Amino acid sequence: VTTYKLVINGKTLKGETTTKAVDAETAEKAFKQYANDNGVDAVWTYDDATKTFTVTEMV
């Protein structure tokens, strides 16, 4: 189990959160659900070296 981080650069929601998951795909599903629940529709990137997902909402 690995800890993954999500950085949110949204128009109305900004911040960071983490989740523990067995792999990046599982973490991504959890983070996308979190973003969807909070109304963030954005572009996703992932950095495997830092285990960090970044979501940037387009203006």
Rank of each mutant, 00 (worst) to 15 (best):
V59E: 13
N36D: 09
W44P: 01
A27F: 02
V1T: 11
M58L: 12
L6R: 00
L6I: 03
K51N: 05
K29P: 01
T52M: 02
V55Y: 05
G39V: 12
K14F: 10
A30L: 14
A35M: 15
M58W: 11
T3M: 09
K14V: 10
M58G: 10
E16Y: 13
L6P: 01
T56L: 06
V59S: 12
A49G: 07
K32H: 07
T50K: 06
A27S: 01
G15L: 15
D48E: 13
E28G: 06
V55F: 06
T52R: 01
Y4C: 04
E57G: 06
A49K: 09
E28H: 11
E28S: 06
N9S: 09
D47Q: 03
K20R: 12
K20M: 13
V1P: 07
D48C: 04
Q33P: 01
T26D: 07
D37I: 15
K5Y: 15
K29W: 06
D37V: 13
K5W: 12
T45V: 09
D48P: 12
A42W: 15
K14T: 09
V22T: 11
A35V: 15
V7I: 14
V43K: 08
G10T: 15
A49T: 12
V59N: 12
T50H: 04
T12Q: 08
T45Y: 08
Y4T: 02
T12G: 12
D41N: 12
T2E: 12
Y4A: 02
K29T: 06
T18Y: 14
A21V: 03
G15I: 15
D41V: 11
N9C: 14
Q33K: 13
T19I: 15
V59I: 12
T26E: 12
E25P: 08
T50E: 05
W44M: 08
F31M: 02
A35G: 03
T45Q: 09
D41A: 09
D23P: 00
V55T: 04
L13Y: 13
W44G: 00
A21K: 01
Y34K: 03
K14M: 10
E57L: 12
E16F: 14
T54V: 06
A27Q: 00
A30Q: 11
V7Y: 05
D47F: 02
M58E: 11
N36R: 14
V55M: 12
E57H: 08
Y4Q: 02
V1E: 13
K51Q: 06
T50G: 02
M58S: 10
V7M: 04
K32N: 03
